[in-house]
Structures are given as structure tokens and as C-alpha cells.
């Protein structure tokens, strides 16, 4: 398994938006297409939020300390 990348979501979202915009809502039911757009927009927003909430992704020191617990910069004593 490989984690889906933001790029893949973008590609899917663009495709879904094209489909939804091409749908003629006067003659047919376009709800499923727009529902897909909403689903992908939400997935993208969730990815962003997860990244923001993960300190190892946006703090260089945290990212370094994840792999080097014993480095001088990273040691933490709780006593």
C-alpha cells in the first residue's frame, strides 16, 4: 500500500469538477457528480489538517528528533 498523495487528490478533484460542471442540471440529476466533488474537497481539506497537526511535518527540529532521540538537541528528561 502507498498513501495517496495530495497530487492524486488534486487530479481526481479536477476531473470531478469538470464532470460536474459539464452536467446539465436542467435535464438530468447532477447530485452524484457534485457529491463526488464534495467528497474529494473534504478529503483534501483533511489531508491539509492532518499535515498541519503533525509537528514532525512542519517543524524541522521535530522532524530531526523523530529519528535522533539521543542527539543533544532532542534529549528530554521528565524528572
Amino acid at each position: 500500500y502507498v498513501r495517496s498523495t495530495p497530487k492524486e487528490v488534486d487530479a481526481q478533484l479536477e476531473k470531478a469538477l469538470k464532470e460536474a460542471n459539464a452536467c446539465d442540471d436542467k435535464s438530468e440529476n447532477c447530485a452524484p457528480q457534485w457529491d463526488t466533488v464534495e467528497e474529494l474537497s473534504a478529503a483534501k481539506a483533511h489531508m491539509k489538517a492532518d499535515k498541519k497537526a503533525d509537528p514532525t511535518q512542519n517543524d524541522p527540529l521535530e522532524a530531526f528528533c523523530k529519528d535522533n532521540e539521543d542527539a543533544d538537541e532532542c534529549r528530554v528528561y521528565d524528572n
Partner: peptide, 27 residues
């Protein structure tokens, strides 16, 4: 909220956000 969330996304517009909410509303 959806404007805040999606407006910056490529391809999304005010119109598409409005339409998406409207289309899902009956269900």
C-alpha cells in the same frame, strides 16, 4: 465554511461551491 475551505483550490469557484451545496441539499 466551504468557501474558506475550497476557494483556494484549483478549479473551484464561488459558483461550483454554491452548486455543490444546492445539488446535495434535497438528499
Amino acid at each position: 465554511w466551504k468557501i474558506q475551505r475550497d476557494m483556494a483550490e484549483r478549479g473551484h469557484s464561488l459558483d461550483s461551491i454554491k452548486k455543490s451545496i444546492e445539488a446535495r441539499k434535497p438528499d
